[in-house]
Design a protein around this nucleic acid. Structure first.
Lengths: 206, 206
DNA sequence: ACCTGAACACCGTTCAAGT
DNA sequence: ACCTGAACACCGTTCAAGT
């Protein structure tokens, strides 16, 4: 059913005072700034500029800088969870699923480095935000479930040692990679294939 | 031999215009600010204030902010290398040495969290600074040497897979710990003993 | 309800000027 | 050679005012 149209004529581009969907536009703009200029360049004012709004506009939707960064991190964790889940579903054997998820973990860090760093290495997030908490829980749930399936009867040990072990390994690998600290061992100008081959070697060393 | 004293009398506290050892004073002040206010609070101006100098004074010794942070990271890596080396020397059996170094890696992150984060997760470092490069090489040399001794004849695999594996594991563990992401699996109010016990469980899962 | 522009206190960097 | 103080362009946050 078509919405009833207003009777008075409206200008083609009234340069709308109210953006209408500034929240989503701000998130998209912030991610663009992040991937273009890195964490250092991602400021509240730069994101507002990129979205074509005034620098005080974000306040209405995100409260403050920590709010904007946290909501962006939340969309990052949601995308992360999707990728991990999709990678795992391509296999049935539990150990193969776990390896695929580990690879997807590192591939995400390579494909979305800015987002990955925002999600994991920012001291400027507010982890109490519901959207962020939920998205994080979803992503880590995928990982935890896959480890649990691969190691059905956990050795005594403190609960979750297997999970922490697998998680630490891929997370540390991704972090060292993004910091460029793996480059010396890989020779000159390493790229994604070299990084993934080394990861495979590391994961299959058991 | 005593230095020759100046003949004209000097005021007790001439409020010396030239600090004399501002470089070292700035590094100490910057570390104090870092541990007190975290990475977010560590600014050039705050460090200069803490050292009792004008905000433009650091320029003479460090160039810019990246210079100050990089020199501070260098003293961090030197201390880090000392601790890793001392921990390893307490054992003779290669595998025991490696485990001790892994524990020292995480213990450093717990005891000097601000410094550890500056060293590893800062996008504001200038890794080309000679002091920083040298200190990093020294620290990683300790780790590499211990892994090499523990796994004398490396499996074919890409060179250094064992090193990257051990390094990724302790580094990821330290990072997740500092981000508070291990707390959920450890129950309420975990502290250093719980963290180290879980680390031991993770490391001995082979 | 949503957005703007001015205002405030901070920041990094530069530079003429002091000692 | 080393340090200061003013200046500039940026930043996050607040707030009265606009629509």
């Amino acid at each position: 059913m078509a919405a009833r149209r207003t009777l008075q004529a409206t200008d083609e581009l009234p340069k709308p005072y109210h953006h209408g969907a500034l929240r989503e536009a701000m998130l998209a703009a912030a991610e663009r700034v992040l991937e273009r200029d890195g964490m250092v360049g991602l400021t509240l004012r730069a994101a507002a500029r990129e979205a074509g709004a005034s620098h005080a506009a974000p306040k209405n939707h995100f409260g403050d800088l920590a709010g904007l960064l946290s909501e962006l991190a939340a969309v990052g964790f949601d995308r992360f969870a999707d990728r991990l889940g999709a990678a795992g579903e391509r296999f049935v054997e539990p150990q193969a699923r776990l390896n695929a998820i580990g690879r997807a973990y590192v591939e995400f860090a390579i494909s979305d480095p800015g987002l990955f760093q925002l999600m994991f290495r920012s001291e400027r997030l507010d982890s109490t935000r519901p959207a962020l908490k939920a998205a994080m829980a979803r992503a880590f749930g995928v990982l935890t479930g896959a480890v649990g399936a691969a190691y059905p009867e956990a050795q005594a040990a403190p609960a979750g040692a297997q999970v922490v072990r697998a998680w630490s390994m891929v997370h540390g690998y991704a972090m060292l990679l993004l910091d460029g600290r793996l480059d010396p061992v890989l020779g000159d100008a390493p790229a994604c294939p070299q990084y993934m081959a080394l990861l495979d070697a590391v994961l299959t060393l058991d």
